[in-house]
Measured scan of single mutants.
Amino acid sequence: SGWQYDTQCSLAGVGIEMGDWQEVWDENTGCYYYWNTQTNEVTWELPQYLATQVQGLQHYQP
């Protein structure tokens, strides 16, 4: 899939279920990364769990 979410945008106002994931701001890069509080996994790309929800939002315009 060529769909890419801009990680400089916060998910805070989007209104999706974050589940075990937390969004963390990284000052050095000026982007958010994502931290799974259960598994301690850290990812710079939007986790599939969140990406599926964001893509499903009608009002979200990339």
Rank of each mutant, 00 (worst) to 15 (best):
S1V: 11
S1M: 15
S1K: 15
S1R: 07
S1I: 07
S1Y: 02
G2K: 15
G2F: 14
G2P: 09
G2C: 06
G2H: 15
W3V: 13
W3F: 15
W3D: 12
W3K: 15
Q4E: 12
Q4Y: 08
Q4A: 04
Q4D: 15
Y5I: 04
Y5W: 08
Y5K: 10
Y5A: 04
Y5P: 03
Y5N: 04
D6I: 07
D6P: 01
D6R: 09
D6H: 06
D6K: 13
T7I: 04
T7P: 06
T7M: 05
T7N: 14
Q8M: 10
Q8T: 15
C9I: 09
C9F: 12
C9M: 12
C9P: 05
C9N: 15
C9T: 15
S10H: 02
S10A: 07
L11S: 03
L11N: 01
L11A: 01
L11E: 03
L11T: 02
L11V: 08
L11C: 04
L11D: 04
L11G: 01
L11F: 01
L11Y: 03
A12E: 07
A12N: 05
A12I: 05
G13H: 09
V14M: 12
V14H: 10
V14R: 12
V14W: 13
G15V: 03
G15L: 02
G15W: 01
I16T: 03
I16M: 14
I16D: 01
I16Y: 05
I16L: 09
E17T: 11
E17L: 03
E17N: 05
M18K: 02
G19H: 02
G19P: 00
G19V: 00
G19C: 00
G19A: 10
G19M: 03
D20C: 09
D20K: 06
D20W: 09
D20T: 05
D20G: 07
W21S: 01
W21M: 03
W21G: 01
W21D: 01
W21K: 00
W21F: 06
W21I: 00
W21T: 01
W21C: 01
Q22F: 04
Q22V: 13
Q22P: 00
Q22K: 11
E23Q: 04
E23A: 00
E23I: 01
V24Y: 09
V24F: 09
V24M: 05
V24C: 09
V24G: 06
V24D: 08
W25N: 00
W25K: 12
W25E: 04
W25Q: 10
D26C: 07
D26P: 00
D26L: 03
D26Q: 08
D26I: 02
E27C: 08
E27A: 13
E27K: 14
E27D: 14
E27M: 05
E27R: 10
N28D: 12
N28S: 09
N28W: 06
N28T: 09
T29M: 10
T29L: 12
T29D: 12
T29I: 05
G30V: 08
G30I: 13
G30H: 01
G30M: 08
G30A: 10
G30K: 14
G30P: 07
G30F: 05
G30D: 13
C31H: 12
C31V: 10
C31Y: 11
C31G: 10
Y32G: 01
Y32N: 03
Y32L: 02
Y32S: 03
Y33M: 06
Y33A: 01
Y33K: 13
Y33G: 03
Y33V: 04
Y33T: 05
Y33C: 08
Y33L: 03
Y34G: 02
Y34T: 00
Y34P: 00
Y34Q: 00
W35K: 15
W35Q: 15
N36E: 06
N36S: 03
N36T: 00
N36R: 02
N36L: 00
N36A: 02
N36V: 00
N36Y: 00
T37G: 09
T37Y: 07
T37F: 09
T37I: 12
T37V: 11
T37L: 09
T37H: 12
Q38I: 11
Q38V: 10
Q38M: 10
Q38Y: 14
Q38P: 03
T39N: 10
T39R: 06
T39F: 03
T39I: 05
T39H: 05
T39E: 05
T39C: 06
T39K: 10
T39S: 13
N40K: 08
N40T: 10
N40D: 09
N40P: 00
E41M: 05
E41L: 10
E41D: 07
E41V: 06
V42E: 13
V42I: 08
V42C: 07
V42M: 14
V42W: 04
T43Q: 12
T43N: 07
T43P: 00
T43L: 10
W44Q: 11
W44S: 12
W44G: 09
E45Q: 13
E45W: 02
L46D: 00
L46N: 02
L46T: 07
L46S: 01
P47V: 02
P47E: 00
Q48E: 12
Q48R: 11
Y49M: 10
Y49I: 14
Y49H: 14
Y49D: 12
Y49S: 14
Y49L: 10
L50H: 01
L50F: 01
L50M: 03
L50P: 01
L50T: 01
L50K: 01
L50V: 03
L50S: 02
A51I: 01
A51P: 01
A51W: 08
A51E: 06
T52S: 13
T52W: 06
Q53N: 01
Q53V: 01
Q53T: 02
Q53L: 04
Q53Y: 00
Q53M: 02
Q53G: 01
Q53H: 01
V54M: 13
V54S: 02
V54A: 05
V54C: 09
V54T: 04
Q55E: 06
Q55V: 09
Q55S: 08
Q55W: 13
G56D: 15
G56I: 04
G56Q: 14
G56N: 13
G56L: 08
L57C: 06
L57Q: 13
L57Y: 06
L57I: 09
L57A: 07
L57K: 15
L57H: 11
Q58V: 07
Q58D: 06
H59P: 10
H59M: 14
H59S: 12
H59Y: 06
H59T: 15
H59W: 06
Y60N: 13
Y60C: 13
Y60W: 11
Y60S: 13
Q61S: 11
Q61A: 14
Q61C: 08
Q61R: 10
Q61I: 06
Q61K: 11
Q61E: 13
P62W: 15
P62N: 15
P62C: 12
P62L: 12
P62R: 06
